[in-house]
Nucleic acid binder design. Structure first.
Lengths: 342, 342
DNA sequence: CTGAAAGCGCTTACAG
DNA sequence: CTGAAAGCGCTTACAG
């Protein structure tokens, strides 16, 4: 910038004014500055600008999700990016891999890099560690799961409601032995989906059978193994309700391996690619991950714009999409051994 | 930092030395600084640090891909992130949406934010605009496609080789009317895959029939429409070779709609989720997007570490995975009208 | 080993 | 409208 000022024969302040376009500058001087910029190939250093300017805005935000390569979260990412893009804001994206320690390291590393705000899928037990950064002006919005021990905005799917809808759908098809395959109960969405599952069973006067619940499934392989075990049990479920995309995929593999994909019903939480091409089509409770990202980013920017109202919790509805797998009726019980009186 | 120095009763310089841990400081002073940091909840401003330090390293890089939500690119992203993470480097990620103007805007916006390097999936005709930034010390590595009009490192898949393998596989199954469905020819990988397709046809003495080539397919819908058109033609192809993941998915939808998934063979470039659950399983030429990301990031960091050798082009091999769809033999020609003499 | 001082590249009151 | 000067939060020669 010094070089530009020297070449244009003006002061540093004038160069800054021309580049920022926020103060009136005599047209001829402005032109001289512009041609000096051109001639020297000058690029403004935005970080230095941020450091000095009064609002300290860096035009960058951070996004912490479970895994940038998980289709659900990468679509949330896309949603955030689209809103940020409209404001010329760039996004740091990072994967916490569901590790609390890593979430915290990432949040602090992002704060240290001067981002204006953070959109976080929280996985730690307590986000209180962010208080300090918020006092330094960092804005926070949580997505997919609400924060804990911190009062902040959040955007989540209606997990319990979606799960109830899934189970009601299976009950309506005649099922009573419905298994639940879920992620670790410490994950908010996994807990909520199990809650919805149990509520729907209760509403249908079906007793909860903990033997039909498999939780702590962290990936597709774990889900496949759990599903194989359930299907091989003496009194196997006639339907599966799977708590998220990777679990659904794992369960599909298990069903295929046992040749049961046309026999055992399946409803998955999260829509997945090719769900309509597989046979039977996979009935899902679809979330709208892009909308989650959009709304989270909108909330963040409204805070950055100065909106200081109470924290908000936005709940995005889910949609049940029937494609076949969820409409399979219960198989005749194959010589069911009486495991429970009733 | 001033507050910390004041509370600890030391100079700014000493605080800086303790925090950076790169110079010896008397243990008692160090302890005083540490407790002051703790008491005040001090967080270092890394951007100010970057501005002043001699190497100007920001410990952040930028990644420009076609779409953060495309499974292929999001896995490349993951690969880059994993390598960056090991070095405590954070990654800005952004989608160019295959728009040259946007690629350029993003690259400049990232450079303005002081990133140490850029990993780019180039889509513009000419990356010469980056020369200026590179002279300012920005390191550049290209991934998925080589740069144009700029000498720089690149990591790409063996597109032509993979395409040849795909077509040879179909030829071996007896096919001679093999369609190619590809992205815009301006996209390097799309052009390379068509080249491989044509080379394999030539090697099998099959004349290229341009009526069997559909290019410029920018998404799944376009691919579906193109496939439907091909399948409805008077002399339809007996096999399809699809040039990337979204096109494969579009073609699958078309085959399903016509009930031809067990009749017309299909080999897709890129592996996709559930490819092994669909019936028939989808034969693909798998890339290794994570490895692409890993290698690109490794190359970038080696440059940042001072490696100044000649530009390198790393070619990552592809793997044909036979799952069923690619092994379907040609259907008896259904009253083929003679369209061409021969 | 420690501190006073200069300065990274920029913006912004403050005079003029 | 313009420029000289201070200063954002840091690091780093330079003396001591």
């Amino acid at each position: 910038m010094n070089d530009v000022a020297a070449l244009a024969g003006v002061s540093l302040a004038t160069v800054s004014r021309v580049i920022n376009g926020n103060a009136a500058v005599r047209p001829d001087l402005a032109r001289r500055v512009e041609s000096a910029v051109e001639a020297l190939g000058y690029r403004r250093d935005l970080t230095a600008s941020t450091l000095r300017r009064s609002d300290r805005a860096s035009a960058s935000i951070g996004l912490i999700i479970e895994d940038v390569a998980n289709p659900f979260f990468s679509t949330v990412h896309r949603g955030v990016e689209e809103v940020a893009r409209a404001r010329q804001v760039l996004t740091f994206a990072a994967s916490s891999d569901e590790e609390p320690e890593r979430e915290r390291e990432l949040a602090e590393a992002l704060a240290a890099r001067g981002v204006d705000g953070l959109v976080i899928v929280p996985c730690s037990r307590d986000q209180g560690y962010l208080l300090r950064d918020r006092q330094n002006g960092l804005q926070l919005v949580f997505v997919d799961r609400p924060p804990r021990f911190l009062d902040a905005d959040a955007v989540v799917s209606d997990s319990a409601g979606g799960a109830r809808a899934a189970v009601e759908h299976l009950v309506a098809a005649g099922h009573r032995r419905i298994a639940f395959l879920g992620d670790r109960p410490a994950v908010f969405t996994a807990a909520e989906r199990r809650r919805g599952y149990r509520e729907a069973l209760a509403a249908a006067s079906i007793e909860v059978d903990e033997g039909l619940e498999r939780v702590g499934l962290v990936d597709g392989d774990a889900a496949r193994a759990a599903a194989l075990e359930l299907l091989a049990a003496p009194a196997p479920p006639t339907a599966l309700f799977t708590g998220q995309n990777l679990i659904t995929i794992g369960a599909l593999h298990a069903l295929r391996e046992r040749g049961l994909q046309h026999t055992v019903a399946l409803v998955g939480f999260d829509d997945i690619v090719l769900a309509d091409v597989v046979e039977p089509g996979i009935t899902v409770v679809a979330q709208d991950p892009r909308a989650l990202g959009h709304q989270a980013a909108e909330l963040l920017f409204s805070r950055l714009d100065g909106n200081a109202g109470d924290s908000r919790l936005v709940v995005v509805p889910t949609t049940l999409i029937a494609r076949g797998s969820g409409e399979i009726p219960p198989a005749r019980e194959s010589a069911p051994r009486a495991r429970r009186r009733r």
